[in-house]
Amino acid sequence: MGLFKKDYSKKSDEELMSLLTKGGQSAFDELYKRYSKPLLNFFFRMLNNDREKAEDMLHDLFLKIIEKPESFDGNKKFNTWFYTLASNMIKNEYRSRQIRSEHEKQTLANGNELFELNSESFDRKLFDSRLQSELDKFDVETKTIFNLRFTEEMSIRQIAEIMNCPEGTIKSRLFYLTKQLSKKLSVYKPELN
């Protein structure tokens, strides 16, 4: 039987989506294997490390392709289309609730003081918390661009497609964002001072 089993790992995302439209469970399994982890981490970062919410959104995202696989436009890259769905879900989530928690505001307020206590050794956790707080000062689009670029390592072109805006705009926003962040976060790298 193994001889006749299809090797889905060699198929492209787009081919898998085509098979999924015809009801292929194995195609779905392969897509889940490829995208569940990166997308969970994307949601996790975008939702201020709220794992429970990130997992809910991951579930809802994959449910969309189970229920309406035909909504995928075969002329587009699956990767771009899927991240566009994820970004839209994030936007809706931001609209529906104020995502900043009191805890994070507290961290932001006490950031410099905390850093001074740990300045001699780089505290990864603290840096992440501070980074999140700084990112929260930007709008959801800018934050999405940042995560797509630095955590998903997407090209400018892909990000432009996902965000539905020109590449120049993405570059401009990324440049401005990294410049601002580097100013704010330089305190975490003692050798920068």
Partner: peptide, 11 residues
């Protein structure tokens, strides 16, 4: 470095 440090698996 940060990207590599935060890496969670779905349940």
């Amino acid at each position: 470095v940060q990207k590599q440090s935060i890496d969670i698996e779905p349940h």
